[in-house]
Design a protein around this nucleic acid. Structure first.
Lengths: 338, 338
DNA sequence: ACTGGCACTGGTCAGGGTCGAGTGCCAGAA
DNA sequence: TTCTGGCACTCGACCCTGACCAGTGCCAGT
C-alpha cells in the first residue's frame, strides 16, 4: 500500500515536472493531485524516493526532479500508453499516403513525427540488406554503356551506369539479364550478391570482361552499405523551444545530428515496439540530458530499419512513445502496399 | 584623405568585431592597428561614421559595432577577397571528387562548405528545369508495367513505374521510345515537356491509352518541381558556437531550416559570383541578425542551382565568400565531368 | 587638422540584506 | 505503525548599493 503511494508520488512528480519544467515541491503536489494525504507525508515519501535514487533535489530548498532512474521507472512501470487522437491518426495516414516514392515516405515520416512529438525526429532509410530483389533490368545505352536498374522489395529503385570496354551483343545482354534474374529474384540482397559471384564462371571466356564488369557493379549495388546508413533528420525548429538550457538540451543534440553514425547508433539495435533510452543509456556521455525513443518499422513482422525521436529527458514519454509507435506502424504498412 | 581614413576605421572595426565579438573602442583600435593617429581622432571619426549610419553604440560607454549598412559597405568596398589556402582547395577537390552520384555530390558539398565556413550550409539540388534530356529509356516489366528512366545533363537519374491498362506490344514501346528520344533529346526539360504533349496525336487511336499514360507520366517527371525545390542542409553543429545569443543567432536559423521554401528564398535569385544578403536584406524580419552568402553553380556558364551559407551578420565575409565561391566552382566542374 | 586632458555616462561586478518556497524532523494524534 | 501540524532552518532568487572602469564627447592648445 505504502509502496503504491510512493510510486504514485513518483508518477505525479514526473508528470508535473514534464509539464512545468520546474522542480516540484510537496505542497504543490498535494494541491494538483488528489493524493489524500498531507504534504508532510509526501515529504517523507519524497525523501525515501530520493534515498532510493529516483529523485534528486537541485538544492536544499527547491523541489525535487526525477533522476534518469526515476524516468526509467516511470516508463517501465508507471506510464499508461496514451492513445493518439483520431485526428492525429488520420493526419499520419493521409500525410504518409500522399508519398510518391521511398525517399518521399522517409521525408514525410520525419516531418510528421517531428510535428507530433515536438522533437527532433530521425528516420533511417529502409535497409537494402534486409529487403529482397524484386526486379533487375539491363538497358543498353548509346556507346558501350549499360544502365543497370534494381528494384527492391522495399520499393527502392537503384540505378547504375557502367562503361564497358566493348559493346555487348543484344543476345549476351538479354541472356545475362535472364540468368541474373533467375539467380537473384526474391533473394535477400546479401545472398543475391553471393549468387552473382558464382554466375561469372558460367559464361564463355570471351564474354567474361563484359559480364564481370556488369555483375560486379550489380553486386556492389546489392551490398552497398550507403542506403543502410543513411538517415533523415527533421524538426530542428523544435529545439528552439528549449532555449533555456542550451548547453544540456540543444548543443549535444545539434552535435549528434551532424554525424549519421552517431544517429544510427542512437536508434540502436532492432527491438519490438517503442524502446526508450534515457540519459546515459544512450551510450554517450554528452547526451546525458537527452532521451531517445525509437522503434523498428517494416511491413508486418519484417524489419526494414529504425525511426525515432530525440529530446530532453524531461519529455512526455507516453505521448512520444505513442507517436513513434503509430508512425512506425503506418510507415510499415505503406511500404508493404507500395 | 580623411575619407580614406574613415573607411579604414570602419574596416578595422568590422574586422575586430568579427574577431572578438565585442564592441570595439577607440583605444583598443589604435593599439591593434597602425592607424598613425591618436584615439581622440579615431573617436571623432567613429562619431562621424555613427552619424552616417555605419556604426552604432550599444550604450553610451561601450565601443561601437557595425550596423547592417556598415557590413554592406565593408563587403562592397572594403573587403579584399581572401584566397583559400592550397590545403583547403585540395580538401575541397579530393572530397568532392570522391562522390559517386548527384545526391552524393550535394551531400558532400554541404559537408565541406559547413566545415570550411563553420556555418550552416545550404545546397540546392541541381535543377531539373535548367538541365537537358540526355537519355530516355522505356523498359517493359512483368505484367503490364513499364519502367521509365530519364537521365538529365546534370547527371540526375529519375525513374517512374507506370501501371498500364493493357500490355503494350514490343513494337509500340520501341517506336514510342525512339519518337520520344527524337523529340526531346538535348531539350531543356520544360520544352521537352511541351514536345511530349504534341507527340500523342501522332499515334494511332488504338495506341492512345498506352501512349497517353506513358507520355503524361514522363511529362510530369520533366516538369516535376520537387527536385528543384529540394535543398540539403548541414553544419547545424556550428550553431552550437553561438550559444551566447541564442535568440538572435540560433533560434531564427533553426526555424528557417525547417522550411525548404524559406531556404530556397534565402538562396535567392541567380546571381554571378558570391552574393551577400545582410540582415533585413534577406527579406525576413526574424533573420535580422543573420547574413546569407550564396552563389549559383553549374558547369561553366550554365546555372544549375544555388548554394550558400547562413550565419550571424558578424561573420568573416571575405573567408566565407571565398569558400562559397570555391565550392560552387568545384561542384560545377564535377557536374560537368560526371 | 590633430592631440591631450578631463568630466561624464552607463554597464558590470561583488557584497549584503530580504523574501519565500521548500525541506527535515519531532511530538502528538489516529 | 502511520499520518499530521508545527517549527526551525536552508538556500536560491531578487534587489539594492557602491566601487570600478571602458569608453565617450568636448574643448582648449599645438
Amino acid at each position: 500500500m505504502i509502496e503504491d503511494r510512493r510510486l504514485n508520488v513518483l508518477r505525479a512528480i514526473v508528470e508535473d515536472y514534464v509539464a512545468t519544467q520546474e522542480p516540484v515541491g510537496s505542497k504543490a503536489l498535494v494541491e494538483r493531485h488528489r493524493l489524500g494525504v498531507s504534504s508532510a507525508t509526501i515529504r517523507n515519501d519524497m525523501a525515501a524516493l530520493e534515498d532510493e535514487g529516483y529523485l534528486t533535489a537541485p538544492h536544499t530548498s527547491a523541489g525535487r526532479i526525477p533522476t534518469d532512474k526515476g524516468y526509467r521507472m516511470f516508463v517501465d512501470r508507471l506510464a499508461e500508453v496514451k492513445a493518439l487522437s483520431i485526428a492525429e491518426r488520420r493526419a499520419i495516414e493521409t500525410f504518409l499516403s500522399g508519398a510518391i516514392d521511398v525517399d518521399d515516405i522517409v521525408m514525410r515520416s520525419v516531418k510528421i513525427l517531428a510535428q507530433l512529438t515536438n522533437q527532433v525526429a530521425i528516420v533511417q532509410y529502409p535497409s537494402l540488406t534486409r529487403s529482397t530483389v524484386r526486379h533487375v533490368e539491363l538497358v543498353a545505352l548509346e556507346g558501350s554503356r549499360v544502365l543497370i536498374v534494381v528494384i527492391t522489395s522495399s520499393g527502392r529503385v537503384e540505378q547504375r551506369i557502367v562503361e564497358l570496354v566493348e559493346t555487348p551483343s543484344e543476345g549476351l545482354l538479354s541472356d545475362l539479364k535472364s540468368r541474373i534474374v533467375r539467380a537473384t529474384l526474391g533473394e535477400r540482397l546479401p545472398e543475391a550478391s553471393l549468387r552473382l559471384a558464382e554466375l561469372i564462371d558460367t559464361f564463355a571466356t570471351d564474354d567474361r570482361p563484359v559480364v564481370t564488369s556488369i555483375v560486379t557493379t550489380l553486386a556492389n549495388t546489392f551490398s552497398n552499405e550507403r542506403s543502410d546508413e543513411r538517415v533523415a533528420v527533421g524538426g530542428t525548429g523544435n529545439l528552439a523551444r528549449f532555449g533555456a538550457d542550451f548547453d544540456t538540451a540543444i548543443r549535444p543534440v545539434l552535435e549528434a545530428m551532424e554525424e549519421q553514425v552517431v544517429l544510427l547508433h542512437l536508434l540502436g539495435e532492432a527491438t519490438v515496439g517503442p524502446h526508450v533510452r534515457i540519459g546515459r543509456e544512450t551510450g554517450r556521455d554528452d547526451l546525458s540530458g537527452t532521451a531517445v525513443v525509437s522503434s523498428t518499422y517494416g511491413p508486418d513482422g519484417e524489419t526494414f530499419a529504425q525511426l525515432g525521436t530525440m529530446g530532453p529527458t524531461r519529455m512526455d514519454y507516453p505521448a512520444t512513445m505513442a507517436a513513434v509507435g503509430a508512425v512506425a506502424r503506418y510507415v510499415g504498412r505503406i511500404l508493404a502496399d507500395g
